[in-house]
Structures are given as structure tokens and as C-alpha cells.
Amino acid sequence: SEEWVEIALRLLELGREANINGTILNLHKEEIEELIRRLLKRI
């Protein structure tokens, strides 16, 4: 399964939302940290 691709796409999506909203992603901080942890486990 290409889970890391899904994770990377989700991170990009959150990054785009952050640019549009001008936020520092506090809302998504925990989700982002969890996604990155899952991503690093696969490398």
C-alpha cells in the first residue's frame, strides 16, 4: 500500500490550507506531527 503517498498528499493539502488561511496550523499541529511520524517509520 502507498500509505506514504497519502500522508504526503495530506501534508501538502494542510500546507495549502495554511497559506490560504495564513494560519500557523495550530489546528492541525497534532495531525501533522502524527502524519510525519508515520511517514518517517516507512523510510
Rank of each mutant, 00 (worst) to 15 (best):
L39I: 09
E6M: 15
L40R: 01
R38S: 05
E31R: 04
I20L: 09
L25P: 10
E30G: 07
H28S: 10
H28R: 06
A18P: 03
W4G: 01
I32L: 06
E2L: 14
E3D: 11
L9V: 03
E3Y: 09
I7A: 03
E33Q: 08
L11V: 07
H28P: 04
A8V: 14
K29D: 04
W4V: 06
I7F: 04
L11E: 00
R37P: 00
L12M: 04
A18W: 08
L14F: 05
I36K: 00
W4A: 02
L27G: 07
N26E: 12
I36C: 09
I32T: 03
L11Y: 01
L12F: 03
R37Q: 08
W4L: 11
L27A: 13
T23S: 11
E13S: 05
I7Q: 03
L27Q: 11
L27K: 13
G15Q: 08
L35Y: 08
T23I: 12
N21L: 14
L9S: 03
L35Q: 03
G22S: 09
E3A: 13
V5W: 14
E34N: 09
T23G: 11
A8L: 14
E6R: 08
L9W: 14
E33N: 14
I20Q: 08
S1I: 13
A18I: 14
A18S: 07
G15H: 09
I36D: 00
I24H: 07
A18R: 00
W4D: 01
L35F: 04
A8K: 02
E31G: 05
L35D: 01
T23W: 10
L35M: 09
L35V: 04
R16K: 10
I20P: 02
K29A: 12
I7H: 05
I32W: 12
V5E: 02
R16I: 12
L25I: 11
L11H: 01
E13I: 11
S1Y: 13
N26K: 02
I20K: 14
L35P: 00
L12I: 06
L27Y: 10
S1K: 13
I36A: 02
R10T: 02
L12N: 01
H28M: 14
R38N: 06
L40D: 02
N26W: 15
R16Y: 12
S1H: 11
W4T: 01
A18T: 12
R37A: 04
S1P: 07
E30D: 12
L39F: 09
L27W: 05
I36N: 00
E34Y: 01
L11P: 00
I32Y: 03
R10M: 13
L12C: 11
E17F: 10
N21P: 03
H28F: 11
R37E: 03
V5C: 13
L25A: 06
L35R: 03
L9P: 00
E33I: 15
E31S: 02
N19R: 07
E30K: 08
R16Q: 05
I43Y: 08
W4M: 05
R38Y: 11
R10L: 13
L12G: 03
E33G: 07
A8F: 13
E33D: 10
L11I: 03
E6F: 12
T23C: 15
H28I: 15
W4P: 00
I7G: 01
S1V: 15
I7S: 03
L27H: 12
I24K: 04
E13M: 08
T23Q: 08
A18Q: 08
L9H: 04
E3V: 11
G15E: 02
L25V: 13
E30M: 08
N19W: 15
N21R: 11
R10I: 13
R42E: 13
L39H: 00
E17K: 05
E2N: 14
G22L: 14
R38G: 05
T23F: 15
A18L: 12
I43F: 04
N26Q: 13
I32E: 00
L11G: 00
N26S: 07
E33T: 13
I24Q: 07
L40I: 08
I24E: 10
L12T: 04
E33R: 12
R38A: 05
L27E: 11
N21S: 07
R37K: 08
L14H: 01
K41V: 12
L39D: 00
V5S: 03
L11S: 00
E33F: 06
N21K: 08
I24N: 11
N26A: 13
E6C: 12
T23R: 01
H28G: 12
L40F: 05
R42M: 15
I7L: 06
V5R: 05
N19F: 15
E31P: 05
E6G: 05
E6H: 12
R16W: 06
I24Y: 03
N26T: 06
K41N: 09
L40E: 02
L9T: 03
L40M: 06
E34I: 05
L40S: 01
L14T: 01
G15R: 03
R10S: 04
I32S: 01
K29N: 11
L11A: 01
R37I: 12
I43N: 02
R38D: 09
V5G: 04
R10E: 08
N21V: 14
E17W: 09
E33W: 14
E31K: 07
E17P: 09
G22F: 09
E17A: 09
I43R: 01
G22Y: 07
I32P: 00
L11M: 02
I20S: 10
K41M: 14
R37V: 07
G15T: 09
W4C: 10
L40Q: 01
A8H: 04
T23E: 12
L35T: 01
R42D: 10
N21F: 14
I43A: 06
E2W: 15
L39T: 01
N19T: 11
N21H: 09
L12D: 01
E31I: 11
L14W: 05
L25W: 06
R42L: 15
I24A: 07
L12P: 00
I36S: 00
E6Y: 08
L39N: 00
E33L: 13
I36R: 00
G15S: 08
T23Y: 13
G15L: 15
I7V: 05
A8M: 15
I36Q: 00
